[in-house]
């Protein structure tokens, strides 16, 4: 008797949709000289956790990372390949996975406050992971890594966190109904 480990089709479709959103976000990247670029991909990564929950959110980020790692240009600014994953900005990419899981766990129950808490902590985790990687790779001390890897992004990421929270609060029930949680739309 084969066990059915296959998730429902709607969940696969949603996970692939968010992977595509994260990848399409690669086109929109504004470079900062000497540091990681400003991207929109982290917004979609956090949103995937908020809307799809920890497991499916992680799945979409994993798909994005896997497709990027084997060389398709889906990382920020149209880059790709394993070298990018192992490079100085790889910490942020690992942070996406962490953020999707944690944001998904926090925002299990719908609502603006929990959504905001989840997305804020998600963005902080991305920045934290990115900073750690920068610190390790470039032999920086904490204040320098903070100045290069976190501070330039804080204002914009705060805006993104609020956007994520609003979008998640507005569309959470819709996403849940698609995933077969709660009332199914007729």
């Amino acid at each position: 008797m084969p066990t059915n480990t296959q998730p429902p089709v709607a969940r696969i479709a949603l996970a692939s949709l968010f992977a595509a959103l994260i990848m399409a976000g690669a086109v929109i990247a504004f470079p900062i000289p000497g540091g990681p670029p400003i991207v929109i991909q982290n917004l979609f990564a956090v949103l995937s956790g908020l809307l799809l929950g920890p497991a499916d959110g992680a799945l979409s980020v994993l798909i994005f990372l896997a497709i990027g790692a084997i060389g398709f240009p889906v990382f920020s600014g149209g880059r790709g390949g394993f070298a990018h994953l192992a490079g100085p900005t790889g910490g942020y990419l690992a942070g996406y996975l962490l953020a999707a899981v944690v944001a998904g766990l926090i925002a299990r129950r719908r609502g603006l406050v929990l959504s905001f808490l989840g997305s804020a902590i998600g963005f902080l985790l991305i920045l934290g992971a990115g900073m750690l990687r920068l610190k390790l790779l470039r032999n920086m001390d904490c204040t320098k890594a903070l100045a290069a890897g976190v501070l330039p992004f804080l204002p914009l990421d705060a805006v993104k966190a609020v956007i994520c929270a609003f979008v998640a609060a507005r569309l959470g029930p819709f996403a849940d109904s698609l995933r077969g949680i709660g009332t199914r739309r007729g």
Partner: peptide, 11 residues
């Protein structure tokens, strides 16, 4: 996973 990866590229 593979199905979602293929679909994602199409999406």
């Amino acid at each position: 996973f593979a199905l979602a990866a293929t679909t994602a590229l199409r999406f």
